[in-house]
């Protein structure tokens, strides 16, 4: 009945994006995976988090490449990158900037802080005092910084990658749930595989490698892609699936605090970005399944109060909830 000639593994199932843009997204991921070895999923999730206009929380031990990941994304997307190392004596002004008196002009002049950038790596965010944390979180939420009664817009796009060290217990201030909610996704890089680590040790410095590659996109392209995310179709049938997942989390016996409606919105948006990266115009349940563990993980609270069961619970939810 049909010509059997068509290639069977075409992932672009529906109408494709303008091929130029989809090629370029693919080439970002390819280039990035030459630098961050063996972590294609993390790269794709980070990119979808950025495109969904969310912020990313990375929970991992030091030395697995968090900084490299942030630099790589910023460089390939043509975005301006800054980094703040959070310490317990860091003050809000150290992030947002401060007005200093200029002797020449005899006036106060605003000295913008490191937050005025496009990709901000907030390293070890849980070492700073809650006051400082909330200054950053305000910037994330509002896209602006208020200092001396004056509100200043941050550059667009603005993407925060915050890290926290899960093993740290002394001298840290854990982020409260309401602030964890500000992060669209929580990821963990984990140790590289044997093969990837061998390649890493044999190869060049990652930073040098990165400099050899050019920018693939500009900040204008990123804004354009971000605006396309909202246009990816999420059909009523798909929304039913998201609702089924959210409701299952609320009524699960081991869950103390289920997913909020805001989590549902985050899930939808992340899945739209994921579908965009995959070159689809519509979200399919697989997209939701791909982002669900990372969107829901830090938003669920178990009865036991212990975080270790969350991953198992999410697996159970994904396996048990039927696609309507």
């Amino acid at each position: 009945m049909d010509k059997p000639a068509r290639p069977p593994h075409n992932r672009a199932l529906t109408h494709s994006l303008p091929s130029r843009m989809s090629d370029r997204i693919a080439s970002i991921l390819t280039s990035a995976s030459e630098i961050i070895l063996g972590k294609p999923d993390v790269l794709k999730l980070s990119l979808s988090c950025l495109l969904a206009q969310g912020h990313l929380l990375i929970e991992d031990v030091p030395g697995v490449g968090k900084t490299t990941l942030a630099q790589t994304l910023a460089h390939l997307l043509g975005l301006q990158y800054r980094r703040i190392q959070f310490t317990s004596d860091l003050l809000p002004a150290d992030i947002g900037g401060v007005s200093v008196f200029d002797k020449d002009s005899g006036q106060f002049r605003f000295q913008p802080g490191p937050v005025f950038c496009q990709v901000l790596l907030a390293d070890e965010i849980n070492r700073a005092s809650p006051k400082t944390q909330s200054a950053l979180l305000e910037a994330m939420e509002e896209g602006q910084v208020t200092s001396d009664g004056e509100t200043r817009k941050l550059p667009q796009p603005f993407f925060v990658i915050a890290t926290q060290n899960p093993l740290d217990q002394i001298g840290t201030f854990a982020l409260p749930e309401s602030q964890l909610d500000r992060f669209l996704m929580r990821l963990s890089l984990g140790y590289p595989s044997h093969q990837a680590e061998k390649e890493l040790l044999l190869g060049q410095s990652r930073r040098e490698l990165l400099l050899q590659q050019g920018n693939v996109l500009s900040d204008g392209d990123v804004l354009d892609l971000q605006s396309q995310v909202g246009g990816i179709t999420a059909s009523p049938a798909l929304i039913d699936y998201i609702l089924a997942l959210v409701n299952a989390s609320r009524s699960h016996a081991r869950v103390a605090l289920g997913l909020s409606p805001r989590s549902g919105l985050a899930l939808k948006r992340a899945a739209q970005a994921w579908a965009l990266i995959d070159g689809r115009k519509a979200v399919v349940p697989e997209d939701v399944q791909a982002v669900f563990p990372h969107v829901a993980g830090h938003r669920l609270q178990l009865n036991s109060g212990d975080d270790s069961g969350v991953a198992t619970l999410i697996k159970e939810l994904l396996a048990d909830v039927a696609i309507p």
Binding site: D2, P4, R6, P8, H9, N10, L13, T14, T233, S235, P236, A237, L238, K281, A282, V283, V284, P285
Partner: peptide, 27 residues
Amino acid sequence: IARQAPKLAGDAERISQLYVRLRYASR
């Protein structure tokens, strides 16, 4: 299906595509 029954892969692929278009891509 492509992994487990390669013979059926082409048909299943096309049916899935149509299903996605009907159910998820249009109102």
